[in-house]
């Protein structure tokens, strides 16, 4: 797929396959198109050319009505969490279940409490997002992304701005969720060490191209000097 903004190419012919139940990580320098790629994957941004196929259906060519149905299978954590600031934490987490319907209010309340307990935020249902710290908001975002048990979960920078301990807690949480649901997971993160421990397979995007897509453990020794320098964090190199 390709995607440009105001004449500037952000995704220049990305070719990628993520299998059902797989966990795939994406890394790359700032403003390299990671978030654009995630939004394209879940149909929030249409590609200029190419296809985005989810379970055999090309969502790039789908109508908005079909896209709604496909998106209902996704859970997404945004870089800025995208919590609705006019709602309480409880309402935010419950939101996907409430709007999709079919679940009793009592059941929704129980599931919200369980999700919040799982992310270490028991008893925060009545608080507003503005009353929480950055790490807590991030965990609320994770709870909201997974409460409807989506088939595919996308995490955009799940640990941005968090301290190392909280970062590890968040990744433990993501691992527990993944193991419990068997969902397909795509993660973008700038925290390379934690990400490489979490994902078995990782890709690196640079100048609109996927420069690496392979085992996370071998990324440090990749043939491509750009990938090697980025993953190792070397100052000297082509970057």
């Amino acid at each position: 797929m390709t995607r440009s903004f105001s004449g500037e190419t952000v995704l220049a012919g990305i070719d990628l396959r993520v299998d059902r139940g797989e966990t795939w990580g994406l890394v790359g320098p700032a403003a390299s198109g990671k978030s654009v790629m995630l939004k394209t994957l879940c149909g929030l941004l249409p590609p200029d050319a190419g296809a985005v196929v989810v379970d055999g259906e090309d969502i790039a060519a789908a109508t908005e009505e079909r896209l709604m149905l496909v998106r209902a299978r996704f859970g997404m954590l945004f870089q800025n969490n995208a919590l609705f600031d006019f709602m309480t934490v409880g309402d935010n987490v419950a939101f996907p279940l409430v709007r999709r319907g079919g679940v009793e209010p009592k059941e929704i309340r129980a599931r919200v409490s369980a999700r919040l307990r799982a992310v270490g935020l028991a008893g925060t249902e009545d608080k507003f997002p503005s009353e929480l710290s950055g790490g807590m908001r991030k965990r609320v975002g994770i709870a909201r992304a997974v409460i409807a048990r989506p088939d595919i979960v996308i995490y955009d920078e799940p640990t941005a701005g968090l301290d190392p301990v909280t970062t590890q807690k968040v990744y433990d949480l993501l691992a527990r969720e993944r193991d419990a649901t068997g969902a397909t997971v795509v993660v973008v993160s700038s925290d390379l060490d934690a990400l490489l421990r979490f994902v078995p397979r990782v890709g690196m995007i640079y100048q609109g191209k996927l420069r690496y897509d392979g085992p996370a453990k071998k990324a440090r020794d990749a043939d491509d000097p750009v990938v090697r320098q980025f993953v190792r964090g070397d100052i000297e190199g082509p970057l």
Binding site: L44, R71, F84, D85
Partner: peptide, 25 residues
């Protein structure tokens, strides 16, 4: 101002990602 802030903080995209049509909601 409220809708503008929701747009720049990705809350509108958040609605769409949850399969909710922002115009209707």
């Amino acid at each position: 101002a409220e809708l503008g802030t929701m747009t720049v903080t990705e809350q509108i995209d958040g609605l769409r990602a949850l399969a909710i049509e922002p115009v209707r909601y």
